[in-house]
């Protein structure tokens, strides 16, 4: 039998963690409880349920940006008017996580800390320049998500630390935003390749600014800053689009797994960019 401890505030959380340094933190439980199902049952580490701490909840303005509680569910994010307005890309991705009940349970903090290469919220969070707020007895610190997530299943979260909030700075002005998830099925599917894109066109219909991020094609979210830079001022002709897709195809590092082969992921990564850029042509 595994004890489940449910602190109601951060102070209580840290006391419990002191007493049980090997405790397993649980937000929505959709990843943790699956892992526990498969582990050797002899393990008696307690679970630290994070759902009842006020600090982890709420979606509110912070400065010009947004502060989302790490224990906010994807349903909560989808329903929130502030999130819809200021982080539409995140709302788009949130709609495609799992299925309706999973969205009621799974949390954004959990998705980040699980750090799966296929995490649906991650490409948008990278594009939105998200940061995580990490609290410990030693104080608070903030870290850009690209520095927080180190590799598949690995984050830089240290002993005695807890992610309490996800911070999104003011959204840059990108009238065109898109998220596409490719899975083996139309819902309840781990993504095989995912893509988030933001773009702004100038008065001539060329690219003024564009940013892209891919999931499931590398150990962490893949970005192509050089490509993004090179596309500034570029016209959206077939040659530009084809060339951009080629750069992406050569630059991603997908693996073969039970869901798809690396070569397929490589091709699709490029094609999702093609769809986005062609879509900009209107």
């Amino acid at each position: 039998m595994r004890t489940v401890l449910t602190p109601s505030c951060l102070e209580e959380f840290f006391s419990l963690l002191d007493a049980h340094p090997d405790a397993l933190p649980m937000a929505g439980g959709t990843d943790l409880l699956l892992k526990l199902r498969n582990t050797a049952a002899a393990d008696a580490r307690p679970v630290l349920a994070l759902g009842r701490m006020a600090e982890m909840h709420g979606i509110r303005a912070e400065g010009e940006g947004l502060s989302i509680g790490a224990a906010e569910t994807f349903s909560g994010i989808i329903a929130d008017p502030l999130a819809r307005q200021q982080a539409p890309l995140l709302s788009l991705a949130a709609r495609q996580v799992g299925g309706p009940a999973i969205r009621n349970m799974a949390t954004i903090g959990g998705n980040i800390c699980t750090a799966s290469p296929a995490g649906d919220s991650l490409p948008p969070l990278y594009l939105l320049d998200a940061a995580v707020e990490i609290v410990s007895r030693r104080g608070r610190r903030r870290l850009p998500i690209s520095q927080f997530i180190l590799g598949p299943g690995r984050t830089s979260l240290g002993e005695g630390e807890l992610v309490t909030r996800v911070l999104l700075p003011r959204d840059g002005c990108f009238p065109c935003q898109s998220f596409e998830k490719v899975g083996r099925r139309r819902s309840m599917a781990i993504s095989v390749t995912s893509f988030a894109g933001q773009a702004r066109l100038d008065d001539h219909g060329s690219i003024a600014a564009a940013r892209f991020a891919w999931g499931s094609v590398a150990p962490t979210v893949a970005r192509f800053p050089a490509l993004e830079h090179a596309l500034v001022g570029a016209r959206l002709d077939d040659e530009t689009i084809r060339h951009a897709a080629e750069i992406v195809r050569s630059g991603v590092s997908p693996i073969d797994d039970i869901r798809a082969g690396a070569q397929y992921r490589r091709i699709v990564a490029g094609n999702l960019l093609v769809r986005f850029l062609e879509g900009l042509r209107g």
Binding site: V4, T30, L34, G51, A101, I102, N104, M105
Partner: peptide, 13 residues
Amino acid sequence: GESRLSCLMVAAQ
């Protein structure tokens, strides 16, 4: 009021 999956919920919740 929300749908949830009871196979991924524990009594403590």
